[in-house]
Design a protein around this nucleic acid. Structure first.
Length: 425
RNA sequence: GGAAGCGUGGCCGAGCGGUUGAAGGCACUAGUCUUGAAAACUAGCAACGGGGCGACUCGUUCGUGAGUUCGAAUCUCACCGCUUCCA
């Protein structure tokens, strides 16, 4: 959610920034509704002050033993007027809130122009794609003989799920362990275990609701709950409705969770294999920081995700997303893309975003600024550190051997119980 | 599954229909004292929204929502959370 002041004072500047994303802000409509809001609010406040004064007068008269009947009649009348004004204000406020909840974050000035992913800016590359002396297979062809089973998954749950067995399942788990250990041991993160089912309010705090309901799985019940699409949601909401002490910042959390996405609107995209699943694992990184250090934190967080790919010896590149490709709640995003030999392309494996105060405002997550003594909104950042399923895909493809086996990356060996190589059978 | 109790400011905790935004304490900030610090004493100290260039001013907020009332932290109902007891 934007600062409401952005929808008042410099409305044109706000609209111009949003236009870079391709978001059209109806300036005339906002001006009209804001003008009316102001009128109604002033009127309601005036009537309420009048009502309060009337009620107080009744109390005074009563304590003196005077006749209160005429005062009561007047107070009743004022109360009725107030109720009407409040009703009108509330209706308008709801309309305004609905509008505000649908407006994306303002972009940071360093975000490159562009309408879609074709305009993303490559910032750097690491590692050289391996030269194969044979035609590299894709991760499905490599994985299926090793225990990657889409047929069973289809029987149990339908499309976009996977079953894995044996050493392959272990490798998948090893990735989780390795990433959590690296981030907690080397990068100063606190490991968190969090719920996978969350409330509507929680998802509203991080910006998935109300606008992106179609991307979420929900469960029926007395109170509806949603399956998390990313650990960003429960972890970031840890600081909701909090006023944090300045010395407690920055907070750096990491969590491993499964993620659930309906992938509505992705029909026909990445239908083969594990690239795009309804359920996948991810190790997430979240920073809660002072506003003046959030861009330094974005670089730091991105470097932490990169460290995982470096340790796994997976070639990757870093992109600064262009204006049209930056997500709803983010002011600036770096994507990490890992090399997939079968596609001869880099594919997204991590997305690191600075949401500035966008989520903090929805969550009322604040810190007490010692300079002012006042509570101020924190900045929140999140990034995958990294996606487990896609890391597994990248390993199968990049570490495959001519005989169909896959060697285990060195840093994962401590987690593999003596398995150094995955082989069929 | 049944019964009782509790949710108040950054934290603890009083208040249980009328000038209470809310006693007291802790924490915090400033001052006095001190070479300095601590202690003691004195003072200040909630958040959010609106209006005004501004001094300032109006309003909202005592788990959440609805209701009763001229007026609700205080009464009623529902919901959420926590605690205790019984099966």
């Amino acid at each position: 959610m934007l600062d409401p002041k952005c929808l008042r004072g410099d409305l044109l500047a706000t609209a111009a920034n949003l236009a870079r994303r391709g978001f059209v802000l109806d300036v005339a409509y906002v001006e009209k509704i804001e003008e009316r809001r102001k009128q109604l609010q002033i009127e309601a406040d005036r009537l309420r002050a009048q009502r309060n004064a009337g009620a107080k007068a009744v109390g005074n008269a009563k304590s003196k033993g005077e006749d209160v009947a005429p005062l009561l009649a007047q107070a009743q009348e004022w109360g009725a007027q107030l109720a009407q004004a409040e009703g009108a204000l509330e209706a308008l406020q709801n309309e305004l809130t609905q509008l505000q909840m649908g407006v994306p974050n303002l972009l940071h000035e360093s975000v490159p122009d562009g309408r879609d992913e074709h305009s993303n800016l490559e910032v750097r590359r690491w590692g050289a794609p391996r030269q194969f002396e044979f035609e590299p297979k894709d991760h499905v062809a490599v994985g299926e003989p090793l225990g990657m089973d889409f047929e069973s998954a289809g029987k149990i749950s339908g499309a976009r799920f996977v079953v894995m067995g044996g050493a392959l399942a272990r490798l998948h788990r090893a990735l989780i362990q390795f990433m959590l250990d690296t981030h907690t041991r080397d990068h100063g993160y606190k490991e968190m275990y969090v719920p996978y089912l969350v409330t509507e309010q929680t998802l509203t705090g991080t910006g998935q609701l109300p606008k992106f309901k179609q991307d979420l799985f929900s469960i029926e019940g007395e109170h509806p709950l949603y399956l998390i699409p990313t650990a960003e949601v429960p972890v970031t909401n840890l600081v909701r409705d909090q006023i944090l002490a300045p010395e407690s910042l920055p907070l750096k959390f990491t969590a491993h969770t499964p993620c659930f996405r309906s992938e509505a609107g992705a029909h026909g995209k990445d239908t083969r294999g594990m690239i795009r699943q309804h359920q996948f694992e991810k190790v997430e990184l979240v920073h809660i920081v002072r506003p003046d250090s959030s861009y330094a934190a974005l670089e730091e967080l991105t470097a932490h995700a990169e460290a995982i790919l470096k340790a796994l010896q997976l070639p990757y590149r870093v992109l600064a997303l262009c204006a049209g490709d930056v997500g709803f709640g983010s002011a600036k995003t770096y994507d990490l893309e890992v090399w997939l030999p079968s596609q001869r392309k880099y594919r997204e494996i991590s997305s690191c975003s600075n949401c500035e105060s966008f989520q903090a405002r929805r969550m009322q997550a604040r810190w007490r600024n010692p300079a002012t003594g006042k509570p101020e909104l924190v900045h929140t950042l999140n990034g995958s550190g990294v996606a487990i399923g896609r890391a597994l895909v990248a390993i199968l493809e990049n570490y495959q051997q001519a005989d169909g086996g896959v060697s285990v990356p060195e840093v994962l060996l401590p987690y593999m119980g003596g398995v150094t190589r995955l082989t069929a059978g």
